[in-house]
Amino acid sequence: MTAPDVPLPSVARVFRSRAVVELKEFFRQREAVVFTLMLPVLLLVVFGAVLNFDLGNGVSFTQYFMAGIIAAGILGASLQNMAISIATERSDGTLKSLAGTPMPRSAYFVGKVVQVLAVTVAIIVILLLIGVVFYGIDLPAGSDWLTFAWVTFLGSASCTLLGIAISSLAKNGRSASATVTPFALLLQFISGVFFQFSEIPSWMQTVAAFFPLKWMAQGLRSVFLPDFMAAAEPAGSWEHGRIALVLVLWCIAGLLLCVATFRWQDRSTK
């Protein structure tokens, strides 16, 4: 007697299962949770306590900093987390094993994207809650929430794709953090996360404009700050159209880089 044919699970079920696996693996890694989820919270608490001064016209530095720290949190959940975790899984053979299973390879990336979205939402909720309760942050109002949503979505998508592409730069999993973290910190310092962007040297502003974090932070400032603060931006306005265009272009560029550079195993194991 032959065994009855067992129907293969649907693609949707495979995607859902992979997403659950990615979420469980992330939240079981204490170091990853602390670094990705809690670091932005700690930075908000420290900077909010030490630098809670008035920028003028009743706008506190904490109100300004909220946009930057949310942008930094998104960068950590997407670019840093993706680059380090994928490089580690490539180095320890996880990617090679997954590539040899019947699972569609696209399911792996779907799981990673779901993980990024879940962590991003958690970071934003926690930061907003702490900001409102302890620092009196004014939340966005009306259509600003829509701007908040599309800036977050496009910023997270572009940084996720860039993180997947950057993962191939690391020689192995052990060197991934040393490769990615300095790059991410540099972007944060020149993109208006820790300081007012108008106080950063103009040549640094120019360099920052080539990367998505600067535009994501600018878009988030537009929903947390009053309209008159747009005069302090390089163009004297929030430039929502340009922000959307740059982030979309980065999504396209990131996707092309992923296709061109992604590897399922280390170079040394080929």
Rank of each mutant, 00 (worst) to 15 (best):
L23Q: 08
L23K: 08
T179G: 02
T181Y: 13
D138F: 11
Q205W: 11
Q29K: 13
L162Q: 10
A208T: 04
W215P: 08
F197S: 06
F26N: 09
P104L: 03
L129C: 12
Q188P: 10
L169H: 06
G56Y: 09
S91F: 03
T152I: 04
A122W: 07
A118P: 04
A208C: 07
F195Y: 13
S237C: 07
Y135W: 04
K270N: 12
I190R: 03
I166W: 12
S222V: 06
Q80S: 14
G136T: 05
P182I: 00
W238I: 07
N52P: 07
P201I: 13
L186K: 01
L256H: 07
E22Q: 11
A71C: 01
L186Q: 06
S191A: 08
G192V: 02
F262R: 00
N172L: 05
K96H: 10
L257Y: 04
V113A: 14
S237R: 10
R16C: 12
V132A: 11
L213V: 08
I69G: 05
F194Q: 04
S91D: 13
V193K: 08
E239I: 06
A107P: 00
L213P: 08
F47P: 08
L51Q: 13
M229S: 09
L79A: 12
G136I: 05
L161R: 02
G58V: 02
L55H: 07
A230H: 05
P102F: 00
F35N: 15
M1E: 15
Q218G: 14
P140G: 00
L255F: 14
T94H: 03
V248W: 02
L39M: 13
T94P: 00
V121S: 02
T160W: 10
E239V: 06
W264F: 09
W145P: 01
G142D: 04
A209D: 12
L249G: 12
A141P: 09
A149W: 01
F15G: 04
E31H: 15
F27G: 08
A71P: 00
A157R: 03
G254W: 06
N57S: 14
R267T: 12
F194W: 09
V125D: 03
M38S: 10
P4T: 10
A208M: 04
F148C: 02
V20H: 13
F109V: 03
V50K: 02
S60F: 08
V116Y: 04
T179Q: 05
R263M: 02
L95R: 01
L129H: 05
V114E: 00
V248N: 05
I137S: 01
A170M: 09
L154E: 02
F109E: 01
S97K: 15
D92P: 00
S177P: 11
V59R: 06
Q218H: 10
A149V: 10
I86T: 11
A67C: 02
E233M: 11
L187W: 08
G100K: 07
G93F: 08
P7I: 13
S97H: 15
V248A: 10
T101W: 01
Y135M: 03
A12F: 10
M229W: 15
L8Q: 15
P226D: 02
L220Y: 07
F109G: 00
L75T: 13
I86G: 01
L128A: 03
V46D: 06
I252A: 11
M66H: 03
R242E: 12
V33A: 09
F224Q: 05
F195P: 15
D227L: 11
E31Y: 14
V11P: 09
G76M: 14
P140D: 01
F211S: 06
S202C: 06
L75W: 11
